[in-house]
Nucleic acid binder design. Structure first.
Lengths: 361, 361
DNA sequence: TTGAAAGCGCTAACAG
DNA sequence: CTGTTAGCGCTTTCAA
């Protein structure tokens, strides 16, 4: 405990130790400290020992921000998501998280409430932090102006050696400078509707969601295609994209029943909406699947919590997250960029207890 | 355009524009650019105009990492949480998120799966990134060695001008260099157990959880205190801290019923466990609350989704998150540090339809 | 109102 | 094997 280092070391100074604090204490140069810290260069065992001791004694933690100035990449990935308390996004983020942890990356996550402006602002914010990539899980309406803005973000990120990854979202028209990791919305809805039809249903309602959101639009497409391919004329009155959530599901279903639409099966836009559908059917004194069959989308845990257990389309949410992170990291500076940077994961039906044939009456 | 700036501007160069790129293009010094960017110093309108134009033309975004080298604080807050797809943590994080957004802060969030080692590693990682604070929402077992490690983290964060915030967790023994934002676990459990007793119940089971986790321990304390304060001898066989989750809730309840323990009321450790309790009671052909009353803790949306609607203890999760963020930011360099840095939020009972008196038989 | 220059903490040649 | 020396991109005195 000599007095050699009294230039800035009053105890209680709330300033993190720096590499030269360590160097001084260990009696070496900062270069040497850097070398033992990164162990990317030979250092004498004895020297290393002294440095390590100084590091622990000082509680030194290298400043990642300073480091990022000289190195390429910050090890941070931005995640922009509409909402956090929602199993859909939750599992997605869990997948991202896992993959990020495996890759030694940190995630900056932020929510937008599906507000496009906030989305853009956040992307910019993350750009300032020089994230290695920003992963956008959008829930925003998909008008052309929005796509244009997204494309601009992709451009500017790309220009600075970062990149935009679109997740659970259709690819940008020209996949300019962005990557996309998504899943088969249309196909799952098609398959489920097909299934309902093959069980004998003709009056199948499409319940929940908001028109204009890509996810919903694709699911509706699949529903429509299944109907027409089986020669069933889609009935506008059975298509009720009147909102998300349990509440919406139950309100719509109540209306469907009250209006005597002859609905014998319901394709709910997701499991949560299906929960509302269940409620309304029970309230009406009807039974699932005896009186009305119910099918849904997403296969969140809710599907098995409901009774009867819900037949639904499985979406590989966690895998989607992992793939998105892979896309965020892939060939960061290589030239092997595939022309169409889009990965599409498959979906499949999970048959449980909420679907049967239409009632005999 | 001219050829003045050909030193490093081949199009396609994947390197972000720097402040001196802007300066060159605007024909000013970097100092001036900095000044218009931060608008913390007078700049001639005309000059500012030129700079702004250059900024947008270049798509320049200031490097937050470089900036953090000269300024104090990074604007980033670390969040360490056991799990993300869980309404308890979900709402907590939502509160954090909101408050962070309001304060213009970004959140680095990472999950631990309740692994203390991973927790410490993450805190360290965030320390490297010089987060302004790290908020730990721990779910780890609370042995002394763990507390000691946490205290060390608090120390080292504090030493570098950052700080540790414990959220939904009891304060550290000496609140050394850390702040705590938590809520009244014991009180809520006490009140709910009291309520059950006043309804006439004597055989009240405590169902779910893991002994040793602070949250559960406190809830158990409250349960025990209510019992003894009413002169009811706690019965070991009714205390079943045999795991979290729906599955555990249903298994425990089944056992309780099969073993003819005479249980007339169940205090589930949280809403999810209660869902399992509901299931087992239905499976046994019994009814809630006619045959068995059920009460729980947390008041997540699940509570109203269940039928009958669940009587439960409300925990102000989002507010907890907001408070935690407030604690993370409060008087960063002032001297007004209160001696005991702990905020405790209250809980209250939410009476719904799952509690009645014990059956007559 | 603006610029020159030093320095934040770190890494990476380049010498020894 | 180790130290010196330039920067990395930005802010901030200090002069002009």
């Amino acid at each position: 405990m000599s007095s050699q280092t009294d230039h800035a070391h009053r105890p209680g100074t709330r300033r993190p130790a720096t590499i030269s604090d360590v160097a001084t204490m260990a009696g070496v140069s900062t270069a040497t400290v850097s070398r033992v810290l990164n162990s990317n260069y030979p250092v004498a065992a004895a020297t290393r020992e002294r440095v390590v001791r100084a590091v622990t004694k000082l509680g030194y933690a290298a400043n990642a921000n300073a480091r990022s100035l000289t190195q390429t990449g910050t090890g941070m990935i931005g995640v922009v998501v509409p909402e956090i308390v929602d199993p859909f996004f939750g599992y997605l983020i869990r997948g991202l998280e896992q993959a990020a942890a495996d890759a030694g990356r940190l995630l900056i996550v932020s929510t937008t409430g599906s507000d496009p402006d906030r989305e853009m602002a956040l992307i910019d914010r993350m750009r300032e932090h020089r994230v290695d990539a920003v992963i956008v899980i959008s829930g925003a309406l998909d008008d052309p102006s929005y796509r244009r803005r997204l494309a601009q973000c992709a451009e500017s990120l790309d220009r600075m050696g970062s990149r935009l990854v679109l997740c659970a979202h259709p690819p940008l028209d020209p996949p300019t400078a962005s990557r996309t990791v998504t899943y088969d919305n249309e196909g799952g809805a098609f398959a489920m509707t097909e299934h309902l039809i093959s069980r004998g249903h003709r009056r199948i309602a499409f319940v929940g969601g908001v028109a204009g959101i890509p996810t919903i639009a694709r699911r509706l497409d699949g529903y429509l295609r299944a109907l027409t391919s089986r020669g069933i004329e889609p009935d506008e009155t059975l298509i009720r994209t009147e909102g998300f959530g349990r509440r919406a599901g139950s309100a719509i279903t109540k209306a469907l029943i009250d209006e005597a639409t002859g609905t014998t099966a319901i394709l709910a836009v997701n499991d949560t909406v299906a929960a509302g559908v269940y409620e309304a059917i029970a309230d009406a004194g009807l039974r699932i699947p005896a009186d009305i069959s119910v099918a849904a989308y997403d296969d969140t845990p809710l599907a098995t919590d409901l009774s009867p257990k819900l037949t639904t389309v499985h979406v590989p949410l966690e895998q989607l997250g992992r793939e998105a992170l892979r896309a965020a990291l892939a060939d960061h500076d290589a030239f092997t960029r595939t022309p169409d940077d889009v990965v599409t994961l498959g979906t499949h039906l999970v048959h449980r207890d909420s679907v049967a044939g239409p009632p005999q009456s």
